[in-house]
């Protein structure tokens, strides 16, 4: 790592102007990523973007912002609720959720700042309703007791955190044009995975007899109230669990190029076949991610 090498890079970048206004705004978004991450920097000059971000990276930023604001609202409501995370048994884990909340809030703040610093006005934070009633008492309650019953709360927390890690994976490729934003997005994604793993550990500790590994697994005990998202088959096909995307046993590198696990892992290591799917987290596609967020707002 060489400071002067970096400075040379920065000084060598010329501030070319972009013709199309939208393209121009998007380029600013990339610059904003650097600014927001270096929050303490009173930059009079924008850091140069590595390349012009695309429309997709803006939409991804908006999606991730809503995700992080949903998670922050979830833990804010749970910590404020009298019945969950407040009894003597749960007092020990309350700091864990305060930590998770703080990290989600920081992620949301970063994404929001990235937009505002780039000259864009982010949408207002929605009013989230974790009962699944969409703020209308007349709607059916999809997730009963999440703010009163610890196990119901943990079940939804686990699904939201697992989905969060996977939603990040689904958006990641849109940031390849901007290494500054990509750097931050990568580092937020692995924090989401840490949260998911921790909540899975808490669930295992809270309920004896429940099978829940630290990664999505076909062996996991089904949920009382599962988060369902649209079937990728479309049309009238029945909605599917968010975990239906995690059963992927093939890893396609590019195009039709599949890693031949079956021929690689033979003999004494053939037993690993059952672990193909759990060795990789899988992206949750944008359509399913959007539908998931809309369940609660």
């Amino acid at each position: 790592m060489n400071l002067f090498s970096l400075l040379d890079q920065l000084s060598a970048v010329d501030a070319s102007s972009d013709a199309a206004p939208r393209r121009h705004l998007l380029r600013q978004l990339g610059q904003a990523g650097a600014k927001a991450a270096a929050a303490a920097l009173p930059l009079a000059l924008a850091l140069p973007a590595q390349a012009a971000p695309t429309d997709a990276s803006l939409d991804s930023t908006l999606l991730l912002l809503k995700l992080e604001e949903l998670l922050a609202a979830f833990y804010t409501q749970a910590l404020a609720a009298g019945a969950v995370l407040s009894n003597a048994a749960q007092a020990a884990v309350r700091p864990d959720f305060e930590r998770i909340l703080a990290q989600q809030q920081n992620h949301a703040r970063f994404l929001r700042t990235s937009l505002t610093t780039g000259g864009l006005t982010p949408p207002a934070t929605p009013t989230f309703d974790f009962s699944g009633r969409k703020n209308n008492a007349g709607n059916p309650e999809l997730f009963p007791n999440v703010m009163t019953d610890y196990n119901a709360f943990l079940q939804l927390a686990q699904q939201l955190e697992d989905a969060s890690a996977d939603i990040y994976l689904g958006q990641m490729a849109t940031f390849t044009g901007d290494r500054l934003l990509l750097d931050v997005v990568l580092r937020m994604q692995s924090v989401e995975a840490r949260h998911a793993s921790h909540i899975r550990t808490l669930r295992r500790n809270a309920q004896s007899g429940v099978v829940v590994k630290n990664w999505p697994s076909a062996a996991d005990t089904p949920f009382n109230s599962a988060v369902l998202v649209p079937n990728p088959a479309g049309g009238s096909a029945a909605p599917v669990s968010i975990y239906s995307f995690e059963t992927n046993e093939k890893q396609v590198v590019t195009g039709a190029n599949v890693v031949p696990f079956a021929s690689l892992l033979t003999g004494s290591i053939a037993v690993q076949a059952g672990a193909y799917a759990s060795a990789f987290d899988e992206p949750l596609p944008t359509a399913q991610a959007t539908a998931l967020l809309n369940l609660f707002s």
């Binding site: 994976l169 995975a193 630290n214």
Partner: peptide
Amino acid sequence: KTPDFLVLAGKIVSVEARHAAF
């Protein structure tokens, strides 16, 4: 530089982070 590789690396680091947290 290849987006496909980036996503594949993300799928793996996500599981590594789960191991680390455990």
